[in-house]
């Protein structure tokens, strides 16, 4: 299966461990990633608060490029990117808006591309296929799936799962034979947006998430967002210092899937995380 791939800034920069992980994992499932050539910024961080047109034009250009390169389905593993791309996909259902954005980006734009996140790729591969591809049973893992803010929101645009009580990551992990825990803070804010501005709040929020996951019996956190990972993994030593939180590894969804599919932690880039992995028993 060939799928278009929009890495965005994170997966080529601070979270290139995520890219390594999902390339290795999806490779095992015969998913070929075709990176959009000449892709540009999705506009997630600053554009939408500065200039509405710009925040539409940036993702629109990426969608137009995907169309030009005949990529009908596009994986955007970062929820900020996928939200931007989905937002403009909805906007260009209106023909006038589409014509205007097409003129701005100087490329034809039809709105053919379907934007998917990592969970949806697993769903597309099929839960039965996943189950049958498992080679290494991960029995000691008790995963707390953490969705964060944007993976399932805003509900008008992101519709693949319930925004407040999502279950799709659990379903994928269960298909892979990995146990998940029922816990309370799946969609609470991790504070990533405030990392620079207000560290106290961020540490407090991260602490609450980690503590609640542990209180419900989890021995690791699973995320599908580079921002969540940076915050909960890289900041965790600071969280522990401030609040006395016990350490806990934070995995990408593709990390655990990759392990179940028989990949080594190094192949998935898990050794590059800040928090040390503590498995398998």
């Amino acid at each position: 299966m060939k799928i278009g791939y929009y890495p965005g800034c994170a997966l080529h920069g601070s979270s290139n461990d995520y890219e390594q992980s999902l390339r290795a994992c999806l490779g095992r499932l015969d998913v070929e990633l075709a990176e959009i050539q000449d892709w540009i910024c999705c506009g997630a961080t600053a554009a939408h608060s500065l200039n509405h047109k710009l925040s539409q034009a940036l993702p629109a250009r990426n969608l137009a490029l995907a169309e030009q390169q005949s990529l009908d389905e596009l994986l955007a593993p970062c929820p900020l990117c996928s939200m931007q791309l989905l937002k403009v996909s909805a906007d260009i259902k209106d023909t006038d808006a589409r014509a205007e954005l097409s003129a701005i980006v100087e490329l034809p734009l039809e709105g053919r591309t379907r934007v998917l996140n990592l969970i949806e790729i697993f769903q597309k591969v099929g839960l039965d296929t996943l189950a049958s591809a498992v080679t290494t049973k991960q029995e000691s893992i008790q995963a707390a799936c953490y969705y964060g803010c944007l993976l399932t929101r805003p509900p008008q645009i992101v519709t693949f799962d319930d925004p407040e009580e999502p279950q799709s990551m659990e379903t994928v992990l269960k298909a892979l034979g990995i146990k998940t825990v029922d816990w309370n803070f799946k969609t609470e804010c991790c504070g990533a947006g405030m990392t620079m501005a207000d560290e106290d709040t961020v540490l407090e929020l991260c602490h609450r998430i980690l503590e609640n996951a542990q209180a419900h019996g989890a021995n690791c956190l699973v995320v599908a967002c580079p921002m969540c990972h940076v915050n909960l993994d890289m900041k965790q030593p600071a969280v522990s210092r401030r609040h006395g939180t016990s350490p806990m590894p934070v995995y990408y969804l593709s990390d655990l899937a990759g392990l179940a599919l028989g990949l080594a932690p190094e192949e998935l880039g898990i050794n590059r995380h800040f928090m040390e992995a503590t498995w398998p028993a």
Binding site: P155, D162, P163, E164, E165, T187
Partner: peptide, 9 residues
């Protein structure tokens, strides 16, 4: 109905 999403939370 698809329109009613409930309050799982």
């Amino acid at each position: 109905s698809d329109k009613l999403h409930g309050y799982g939370e």
